[in-house]
């Protein structure tokens, strides 16, 4: 049975009434984004469990959801919270400060007057399409993203792949707007470094 839920409020109400078709529709809409956030924060292996916990918490709390954010933002915030709790419990969390720091690699790309020590290399791929059509490079970019610290990875995923606004990122990840900007920028610069390395050497170096 499938029912069209015309508005988000309809869906939320039906979820609160514990209707199966509403659960199904919510999962259809949000499972993929929720998994993406969970995988960013806790890795592939634990993501399933984190998302399961998040659904259960969400369904327990849906009756008191006041709709001050979209349903998606609310669900993603619950996932992020479950993920962070999990990391804390397993002593795997990285401090926010560490995730905000400049990559030492880029510290050395500038001299004491702030000029490039080595000029940025010209990329052969000079359009987004060209960057994406090279499988090896594409794979290398994905590996780089998977190795980013959790909050950087989540910020990058939410912004680039889910098109969420900076404000929504703050709400979901519970960090300040200026920190979200830095997290996102650090993640992007790490990917930039990978592409540049690949363009100059033909080799993939996704990690530290």
């Amino acid at each position: 049975m499938s029912t069209a839920f015309e508005t988000e409020s309809d869906l939320i109400e039906a979820m609160a009434a514990e209707r199966d078709d509403a659960f199904r529709e919510a999962i259809r809409r949000y499972q993929s984004p929720m998994m993406a956030v969970a995988m960013s924060l806790v890795g592939d292996k634990l993501a399933d469990e984190v998302v399961q916990e998040a659904w259960l918490s969400a369904l327990r709390a849906i009756g008191s959801f006041e709709q001050r954010s979209s349903l998606k933002t609310w669900l993603l915030r619950i996932v992020a919270n479950e993920g962070k709790t999990r990391l804390r419990r397993e002593n795997r969390q990285t401090s926010l400060d560490a995730m905000l720091e400049v990559d030492p690699y880029f510290r050395e790309r500038f001299d004491s007057t702030g000029h490039w020590t080595a000029a940025p290399a010209a990329w052969e791929a000079d359009t987004p399409e060209a960057l994406l059509t090279r499988d090896e490079l594409q794979h290398c970019i994905e590996q780089t993203m998977m190795q980013l610290p959790g909050l950087q990875q989540a910020a990058l995923n939410l912004r680039e792949r889910q098109g969420m606004s900076m404000k929504e990122l703050c709400n979901i990840l519970e960090v300040s707007e200026s920190n979200v900007r830095v997290l996102l920028h650090r993640a992007r610069m790490r990917v930039f470094r990978t592409i540049e390395h690949f363009e100059t050497t033909g080799e993939c170096q996704p990690g530290e």
């Binding site: 987004p128 992007r188 930039f192």
Partner: peptide
């Protein structure tokens, strides 16, 4: 210019949830 090209390349939608996953 390369930074902006990269950002645009990263902007790809997530895959839809499959029926089996649902």
């Amino acid at each position: 210019s390369q930074f902006l090209v990269m950002v645009r390349a990263l902007q790809r939608p997530l895959p839809e949830t499959t029926e089996k996953e649902v």
